[in-house]
Design a binder for these strands. Sequence first.
DNA 1: ACCTGAACACCGTTCAAGT
DNA 2: ACCTGAACACCGTTCAAGT
Lengths: 182, 182
Amino acid sequence: MRADAQRNRDRIVEVARAFFRAKGFDAVSMDEVAKGAEVGAGTLYRHFPTKESLYDAVLEAWAEKVNEAVDRALSPDASAREQLLTWLTDYAAMLTEHKGAAARITAALGDPGSPFAAKCTTYLNANQRVIDALDSALRPGVEAMQISRLVGGMAAVADNSELPADAVASMLEIVADGLLAP
Amino acid sequence: MRADAQRNRDRIVEVARAFFRAKGFDAVSMDEVAKGAEVGAGTLYRHFPTKESLYDAVLEAWAEKVNEAVDRALSPDASAREQLLTWLTDYAAMLTEHKGAAARITAALGDPGSPFAAKCTTYLNANQRVIDALDSALRPGVEAMQISRLVGGMAAVADNSELPADAVASMLEIVADGLLAP
DNA sequence: ACCTGAACACCGTTCAAGT
DNA sequence: ACCTGAACACCGTTCAAGT
């Protein structure tokens, strides 16, 4: 990739991240990203063929934090319920960090053709790690996909309705208790 | 209301219902509704000031089925868990019946200014009836708003990802167990 | 190779003009 | 009162023309 193209790409992602963070996916237009990055619309689309693929690039670095969150949650000093709840809370918080991300990523969970497919795999693997670690403390037969959808769904609701943290927490407790072995 | 205006209104809702049912909220344009109902765009907007308010009118009759579903679910022959699960399943099925409805109604749950505000009240009351009926079988302190958001969130996920019924059912079982008293 | 920006197609909504 | 339909504002995306 030519040096100027690389510079353009970097500037686009940087500008897009700031806009998406401030206003959420829907409220940001591709035009203002192009203008902000001082490139033509064609250049923007040469680097990112759709608005969603641009969003995916913006969420790149942030997705790497998922595995750290799993490590943090799986502390052997805590009860299984506490570990699970810590993870679900962190997970939901990360999903809610970017307005519009939770619903989009959760909707992409079953779709390998989505721009978010790589992100989905990361999440599913993270939830699988939690399932493996907590093992017999969990309801027999729970799948990573189920946890991903349950928490993703709650994060999407929290995002849409701009719920306060404690409203989210009380719903995640219900989900966590449902996930634990009877 | 003038007779021709009433006729127009009825035709608009009828046509809109067919389109929304067939294609879902996003894939239907106000223009095609106007054309289908053989009215000008201005007439459509005179009757329904926004696309969402038109959707609300389309969902009118269907919302009345909610209370019947509660009656059906609260059969005293079944265990509390079975009653709860029947209700959650019916509730989610009704929300998923119209593509795009679940996410919109769930997002409106806290917002009295939404076109769906009346529908939200219906849902919250229905969930409150279930809470009152199952009473001590439920986790102490559960609120109608929490159940509405949990099931609404799951219905929205199911809707977005076009999940098969058994995938939804397994998630609702988790939610139900979380809602029952320990 | 890569860039530019005008243009396209579409959509929710409005409004001047009609009856 | 109510209706019509052209027009507006906006947006994701494309493409002919440039360097």
